[in-house]
């Protein structure tokens, strides 16, 4: 059943605290870090954790921080790193010459083969996802 909007927005849940969410995300990340790329488990784990977070984020089940009503001119500063990354990623992808001029994904793949690095990447992904759900 859909919850009343006002109640869900104003009353923080008992589990919605860093002391609960950080260990939960850490456990999910440690499990996710064990699954190699292209495995069925990795696909299922990504679908399951991401799907659950999308479900939480699209409903009114989690208290959200207020969003800004408008953004100032300072926002254009974000175009600088985004444009540099976008142009490089586009160029490396279109040229498609492999390791000679690699895409970001191709550079990240060998690093993500290590289980510890993979778990850290999982944690970063899930923590940022949780941050988005709460916005």
């Amino acid at each position: 059943m859909e919850q009343p909007h006002e109640i869900a927005m104003d009353v923080p849940r008992a589990w919605d605290r860093p002391v609960v969410t950080v260990p939960v995300l850490a456990c999910l990340s440690l499990v996710g870090g064990q699954f190699p790329s292209f495995s069925a488990q990795a696909n299922i784990w990504t679908l399951g954790t991401g799907g659950a977070l999308i479900w939480l984020g699209l409903g009114n089940r989690v208290q959200r921080r207020p969003a800004p009503r408008r953004l100032g001119r300072g926002t254009v500063w974000w175009l600088l790193p985004a444009a540099l990354f976008g142009v490089l990623e586009g160029a490396t992808f279109v040229m498609a010459v492999g390791d000679e001029f690699p895409t970001f994904s191709r550079l990240a793949d060998p690093l993500l083969e290590d289980q510890l690095v993979r778990s850290a990447a999982w944690f970063a992904w899930l923590a940022a996802f949780w941050g988005l759900v709460r916005r």
Binding site: W45, G50, L53, I54, S105, R118, W125, L126, A128
Partner: peptide, 22 residues
């Protein structure tokens, strides 16, 4: 329809799937 939320969540999910499952 919360198009912005769907778009941002969709992009972030795809990013995780791309790096961690593919």
């Amino acid at each position: 329809v919360p198009v912005g939320r769907i778009g941002v969540f969709g992009f972030w999910w795809w990013l995780g799937w791309h790096f961690l499952a593919r």
